[in-house]
């Protein structure tokens, strides 16, 4: 469920891209610093980059951007990198928690060897992070359990299923950005819905093939063209609606820190990603034997 929230790079101003990249590199550094292990740095993704920008904005804290080199490209050019402040370190922990429970969920789903290895490798860091953020760890755990129970029961309502993941994101947003805030909750909830649904739609073919549960096709079985169309319509409506709600909440928020990068993701990035995923499946549908 990671990597869907991204900037719309073709339509991004260079200055905003520089800021976005600085956060991305900064997050990677913060993870390395927090975990004291280079392995965890592989878990860097664009979603937490977005979360880092959002959190800096909510706390009205400008990032400390300095030029530096990437640890993986020692001979490369220098780039602006956001320094690892408290917010970054906290988000590094959040990322560890989210990553661990995701892998844990995969394992419980009858995961393969690679999932078990990943779980083993991240467990030590997870325990440290869970000690630092016990409430969030508890919330993610219970919500994943709730989700699994609903899936097992063959829940048909995508709203109920998405609610679990959306609740996780609301809690993540509260921990990262500090304190409950109606607009932030709204934004996070709808973002959670959006991520859950787009992920479900993206995995549809894979889930059918491996006979796993998919929220869009709770009864399983092969796809008929009518079913396919109905699912596409439902998904499109719900994704667009979630984006409309995210934009509505964002419009009302006060945005002073790194506004350009944030606006690009909210106004353009989410839409671009939605269209990409929707059209990708349409293309695949043409190739599929009828």
């Amino acid at each position: 469920m990671f990597g869907y929230v991204n900037a719309d790079k073709p339509n991004m101003l260079m200055k905003d891209y520089a800021v976005f990249r600085a956060y991305y590199c900064g997050m990677c550094r913060a993870i390395g610093k927090r975990a004291k292990s280079q392995f965890m740095r592989l878990g860097i993704n664009y979603d937490i980059t977005f979360l880092a920008i959002l959190a800096h904005n909510c706390r009205k804290q400008e990032p400390d951007i300095k030029e530096g080199r990437c640890a993986f490209h020692i001979l490369g050019k220098k780039y602006p990198i956001a320094g690892a402040d408290d917010i970054m370190l906290k988000i590094a922990d959040i990322n560890t928690l989210l990553g661990y429970y995701k892998v844990e969920d995969d394992v419980q789903d009858g995961g393969k060897l690679k999932h078990r290895i990943a779980r083993l490798l991240t467990r030590r860091q997870f325990k440290k992070a869970a000690k630092r953020l016990p409430e969030l760890a508890e919330s993610i755990k219970t919500n994943y359990e709730r989700l699994r129970a609903l899936e097992k029961a063959g829940e048909k309502s995508i709203d109920r299923l998405a609610d679990c993941f959306a609740t996780i994101l609301v809690d993540v947003g509260r921990v990262a950005c500090g304190g409950p805030d109606g607009l932030l909750d709204d934004l996070c909830y709808n973002l959670g819905r959006w991520i859950y649904l787009i992920d479900a739609y993206d995995d549809l073919d894979k889930d059918i093939e491996e006979e796993r549960f998919n929220p869009l096709l709770p009864e399983g079985g092969p796809l008929t063209p009518e079913k396919e169309q109905k699912i596409a319509d439902t998904v499109k409506f719900n994704l667009d609606f979630a984006i409309a709600n995210i934009i509505e909440a964002y419009d009302k928020m006060e945005v002073t820190v790194s506004e350009g990068a944030l606006s690009n993701i909210i106004y353009r990035g989410l839409k671009a990603r939605t269209e990409e995923i929707l059209s990708r499946r349409c293309k695949n549908a043409d190739k599929r034997p009828v």
Binding site: N11, L13, D16, I247, Y250, D251, K252, V255, E259, G260, S263, N264, I266, Y267, R268
Partner: peptide, 12 residues
């Protein structure tokens, strides 16, 4: 979208 204070290029 109603927020005028955002970068014009990104507004819907």
């Amino acid at each position: 979208s109603g927020a005028a204070s955002r970068t014009q290029a990104y507004r819907p």
